[in-house]
């Protein structure tokens, strides 16, 4: 049994570290601290294995929505959806299927991908801590853990809604080893979470459409 678990440093340690890292980085005067021109890109309505049917019957044995089961692959470098045919290539960085997000790494793909979840504001992540360890996918334990309250979302069974947790930034290493930061903003079509009072059928129809923003550092450094 693996009794070890990823443990995030305390906020105090984080701030200390970031402070030190900034000091260290700012000592190297020949390198720009904040490269100019890095823009956050917002992706809207990325369909991620949307619902195509509902199992016969009613809950708890039936009535479950299902999709085709295929990932939607996305390249952060090109800001483009990659066809599934290229799933075994380095062309994609992230794959989306329902609430599962995979990186091009380990059991998921041949790339140098990896990820970890950073707690804080998107804009405050200016430099990826040097000692942070990026996890790689080892299905079903993905670098970005799946499950309510574990990485980037919570699922409320009572409301049947998935909501991204505020203050969670996904630090991504792309298939080619570059760094990006991603914040998931919404899980529903149009970037608007349906009202709780909407019937299940509406919630099913609108779910699994990602809205997220990201910043890619193309030069391979860990700074944004």
């Amino acid at each position: 049994m693996k009794t070890s678990f990823p443990k995030f440093p305390s906020p105090l340690a984080f701030s200390l570290f970031i402070g030190l890292a900034t000091l260290v980085v700012s000592c190297k005067k020949d390198q720009p601290v904040n490269p100019v021109g890095l823009q956050a890109v917002t992706v809207q309505n990325l369909a991620a294995d949307t619902i195509i049917g509902i199992t016969p019957g009613v809950p708890p044995t039936g009535g479950m929505p299902y999709g085709s089961g295929k990932f939607t692959f996305f390249s952060l470098e090109n800001n483009a959806i990659i066809p599934s045919a290229d799933s075994a290539s380095n062309r994609w960085d992230l794959g989306f299927r329902g609430t599962t997000i995979i990186t091009n790494s380990g059991s998921s793909g041949p790339g140098q991908g990896g990820a970890f979840v950073w707690t804080g504001l998107f804009a405050d992540l200016k430099s990826i801590p040097a000692d942070s360890s990026l996890r790689v996918d080892a299905a079903p334990n993905y670098a970005i853990p799946v499950g309510s309250g574990r990485a980037w979302y919570t699922y409320s069974q009572a409301e049947q809604l998935v909501r991204p947790i505020p203050g969670k930034v996904l630090v991504i290493r792309t298939a080619s080893g570059k760094f990006a930061k991603v914040e998931i903003l919404n899980y529903y079509k149009g970037g608007v979470t349906p009202a709780v009072t909407e019937p299940d059928s509406v919630k099913y129809k609108l779910q699994r459409y990602y809205t997220f923003r990201y910043t890619l550092q193309p030069n391979g450094s860990r700074d944004f």
């Binding site: 906020p11 504001l121 998107f122 505020p166 914040e183 903003l185």
Partner: peptide, 16 residues
């Protein structure tokens, strides 16, 4: 108080 809690602003972005 320790600034460990986040919520979302009207545009959907995280804020303290």
């Amino acid at each position: 108080r320790n600034k460990e809690v986040y919520t979302r602003d009207d545009e959907g972005f995280s804020r303290l």
